[in-house]
Design a protein around this nucleic acid. Structure first.
Lengths: 231, 231
DNA sequence: GGACAATGGTGATCTATATCATCATTTTTT
DNA sequence: AAAAAATGATGATATAGATCACCATTGTCC
């Protein structure tokens, strides 16, 4: 089992998280007893598509990239998950094997929970179940909009989406550093490395953004928004 | 309130459905008391994007088409829902307004349930909550694969997907009738009417399928599969 | 029963973006 | 410190499929 030091740390994490905070004391203890805290380096694989689903992964610190791999060896990045959220929930409940892969972006801390325990809590704790339902719902809706964008927006619109995604969803700042290489950003925009680079560099030349390596500053937010809206 | 005749009918429906069948008697009665059965004609709108979410819609008979409308007036069909499933669950839990529209395909019967009642049942009935979680999960995963296809498959692959979708998911038969016009099938394949028509007519000329108006017969299932797999 | 809209279809043209090739820097590995 | 791999970038070229413009049938509505 886990050392008391870790147990203590896990309890603190649960108490900080919006989703577990209000759990009954006993439920929290159950979770602590059946979880472990694992630290990952940049680009470590958390789980791989087609392997058996096993545990619930709750992201404590850092970012996790979720991507689908296919025969053509051209992955699609489905989403980036940040702290206080789960990785792989949907697969866990619907399929015996993971439907996508996950890997860490930067130094990442994951709380790995026993699926059985998690399930029991869901069954007994209605509030919790509703929260999980809400999380899954939001996820569905996010991918709906991605699909819509992929079908109808052209590249500048989708690149603008990526900029807004990082600045608004991930970093809450209009100045930030891409945590990913260009080819990964391209996967997120549903295009190729080359096309992504060309498009974002055009944004730079048009002074819509400042761009120095991975460092970005959105200069004309309104133009980025227009590009995103009009596709 | 509802007439006893309808109450009786609703109870029968609940008893036939995989999801409500094993509910405690009292829960079923609650549902019956707070639901109503509504019949829709072909192409009736069940709910419209951006209107306030209100009720849970459980499809009893028929099909429902879920689609996103956007400025460009080019809808994307997200999915088709068939009997024994819900329409709009994800939006209901995540947002105050519908994130997409829904309309009936053919004659359709919907059991409209009060959201409050539904919510209470979710909270008190853990099995039910888990079932709903599973449904939402599957939905997410389905759209993930759609997104993946949209990014990496070219048209013949996506048209093959549409054929397989109807034959395997909807009708469980390799001979069936499209319930939709060509332009709607195109929306489902993420393309334009013209391109869809050209591609599916090529399938016909290549004797991969038989096609007479909306009547289809998949002749070479293996080729359709290969087209779908290799994109 | 005539008008108007919706549907299925085909050809010609255009263009956004994928693809291929190549290269200079930077980073990582040995 | 050298070798190998990853990254960001740019130019040339090819092409899948969107767009535009029609048309013939069929269906629907005053």
């Amino acid at each position: 089992m886990d050392s008391p030091v870790q147990a203590n740390e896990i309890m603190k994490i649960l108490e900080r998280s919006w989703i577990f905070r209000n759990f009954p004391e006993q439920d929290k203890k159950d979770l602590v007893a059946n979880s472990s805290l694992v630290r990952y380096n940049n680009r470590d694989v958390l789980f791989k598509q087609k392997t058996r689903t096993s545990h619930v992964m709750f992201i404590v610190k850092g970012l996790v990239k979720i991507y689908k791999e296919n025969v053509s060896n051209r992955p699609v990045m489905l989403k980036i998950i940040s702290g206080d959220h789960f990785a792989g929930l949907d697969t866990l409940f619907a399929e015996p094997v993971y439907q996508y892969s996950a890997s860490s972006i930067g130094e990442t801390t994951i709380l790995i929970m026993d699926f059985g325990t998690f399930n029991n809590l869901l069954m007994s704790n209605g509030r919790f179940a509703l929260d999980v339902i809400r999380l899954l719902s939001k996820e569905s809706l996010y991918i709906f909009t991605r699909l819509n964008s992929q079908i109808h927006k052209q590249l500048p619109g989708r690149v603008a989406d990526v900029l807004l995604y990082f600045s608004e969803e991930i970093y809450q700042s209009y100045e930030f550093e891409f945590p990913l290489a260009r080819h990964e950003l391209a996967e997120l925009a549903g295009t190729t490395k080359e096309s992504f680079i060309r498009t974002i560099n055009e944004f730079k030349h048009d002074k819509i953004i400042q761009l120095e390596g991975r460092r970005v500053k959105i200069v004309s937010l309104d133009i980025v928004r227009i590009l995103s809206d009009l596709g």
